[in-house]
Nucleic acid binder design. Structure first.
Lengths: 336, 336
DNA sequence: CTGTTAGCGCTTTCAC
DNA sequence: GTGAAAGCGCTAACAG
């Protein structure tokens, strides 16, 4: 269905050289006499020639394409991450092919097969848990791949991200230091995200600093955060702080709390995760954990491209999340 | 750098047939005796064979890849749009390659060249205004492409989207009907978006219904909306309604108004554009215009795939935006 | 510095 | 129903 545009031999004829020379010019490598190059370039312009990517890929066995499969692109920190990957790849003339898995192993596998069949040479996966079939498929085909949004030095697959468990523990610790001893964590579906599970584990590990630590699972959306408030109030009416494993949830919690007539942080403190860009604009500004999404995108992209270029093995890389202290957490005076 | 995985001839040898038969099986078309097919399929499994996409593309001249270039993926309605495109394409075994232009013609052109060099067979562009070079490039190469987020029956390029001007006019009309006669519009950078320009034109066209209509340009972000409030208050302190050309801006306006001690909608009414998912959760729920982003994504994807399959020409398609009436607009009693 | 030539792995007539 | 063979457009030795 596509048109027949100029081929390399047309350019060769037009400029009076062989196709090999045209190829050399197109790949701006080998030695070509400047004036010959010039002539070829002109013919190229004139014929509006662009090398056929399929033919090129067929001979070079390279497609310069890397795939990323993310759980969702909507409403989250993934957009930032993807934008960074895209940018880093563009610089080195690589392309990103994106697919969304909805946190479903089967969909993820299907997506991966499609991407593979498109010629993806490397894969960026989110989180640490993936179907065995997928992992084996990638391994058998010797496709380099990395897990992101997690850092786990013990993993045999390179993980590029942060320590979710430690981050959640530090959030609890932070809250405890501010005098909160009854906290409820609001989080998205555990089955959909090993990062959420890791965070929960981390929170529990710091639970001894508290008198009481509760968990409320909800949909990972503003609406989910909002409805979670009701549950929080029901199960732990005396909680003084709500820790949300995502800023999106925190936004919903703000709304829910507002509707319940509760003031942040006077009545209830709120802390988030992600540091989405509106978090510093809301009143009170949200205390949250900044996740280095951009940096992470750049890091995976660069590692993967490197690996594809010269075989450098992928290595795990820890990126630090940091607590951004703002005004949504109240200091509760010690009341011994 | 890539490994040598099983090729078609390996499968042929393994299953004792010719490569032509293997090809037939892989393309599940022509007649192949069931048991032969079976044998081939088994060999395929055993050797973990997947047809080489480059070789296939080289002979068929098809890549089953469509490119989309969007201004930004962060913080907006584009995420929804892209998700829908992705989904629609997946169903028909097409792949999406995405690039971000930051609303810059030069970047857009560069992105397009890269995507073309990757083998994109069709293009999804955002808005109506694009560099001539890009458009000519696409035309010369006879690549089908469509403009989205706009509907303009007079355009010679297919436009798939909504009538931004009419939508903005209807928003002003709606507000006027509720008794508002002094309105300020808060919008993103005009130079970056022909949609924004079209909306402004539409708003102005309905301006005769008002006593006063002002415009404040700001960054297209929550922060931008928030700071715009100060300007609104400065230039038109008596405005009773703020119309935001994006919900993201409206969120910022809510925050800014709150900080200024102004209540929505008692003191100032607010209306948005986009119907992002949190808009119904915020208090008061935001009256906004729903833009059919998903539907639009599905529509372009399907038209483009159709065109690529059988040459059906692309046609403009209008999708309707609708006012979602909620609680952020107060009714001002006629006070003649 | 430039040309010749041999494939890359697949699809697709055309025979049988 | 199946096989043989001719490319698809390009890159990469290898000569010269």
């Amino acid at each position: 269905m596509r048109k027949k545009i100029g081929r390399i031999r047309d350019v060769a004829r037009e400029s009076g050289v062989s196709i090999a020379t045209v190829s050399r010019v197109m790949n701006s490598n080998s030695n070509v006499k400047p004036e010959t190059r010039q002539r070829v370039l002109e013919a190229t312009k004139r014929l509006d020639y662009v090398p056929n990517p399929a033919a090129r890929a067929l001979t070079t066995k390279r497609t310069q394409t890397i795939a990323a499969i993310i759980p969702t692109i909507e409403n989250s920190v993934f957009a930032k991450f993807v934008a960074a990957i895209e940018q880093a790849m563009s610089k080195q003339n690589y392309s990103l092919v994106l697919s969304v898995s909805n946190a479903d192993d089967a969909l993820e596998l299907a997506a991966a097969e499609k991407l593979l069949a498109m010629g993806a040479e490397g894969f960026i996966l989110s989180g640490r848990d993936h179907g065995d079939i997928l992992i084996n498929l990638l391994r058998r085909r010797q496709i380099p791949f990395a897990f992101t949004s997690v850092f786990d030095p013990t993993s045999d697959v390179a993980t590029i991200g942060y320590d979710n468990s430690a981050l959640a523990a530090s959030a609890i610790r932070y809250l405890a230091e501010k005098g909160h001893s009854e906290i409820v964590v609001v989080h998205g579906p555990l089955v959909e995200s090993d990062r959420t599970v890791a965070r929960k584990v981390g929170a529990i590990s710091a639970g001894h600093l508290l008198n009481r630590l509760g968990f409320v699972e909800t949909n990972l959306s503003v609406a989910g955060g909002k409805t979670a408030v009701l549950e929080v109030l029901a199960i732990q009416p005396r909680a003084t702080a709500i820790l949300c494993f995502s800023d999106v949830l925190a936004l919903g919690v703000y709304f829910g709390l507002g509707d319940a007539g509760l003031h942040v942080p006077k009545d209830v403190s709120v802390m988030g995760f992600d540091n989405l860009d509106w978090s510093k604009e809301i009143t009170p500004a949200l205390t949250t954990i900044n996740l280095p999404a951009r940096q992470m995108g750049t890091a995976v992209a660069e590692q993967l491209m490197r690996t594809l270029e010269d075989g450098t093995p992928l290595v795990s890389q820890e990126l630090n999340g940091t607590i951004i202290e703002r005004n949504s957490v109240r200091i509760i005076p010690r009341q011994k």
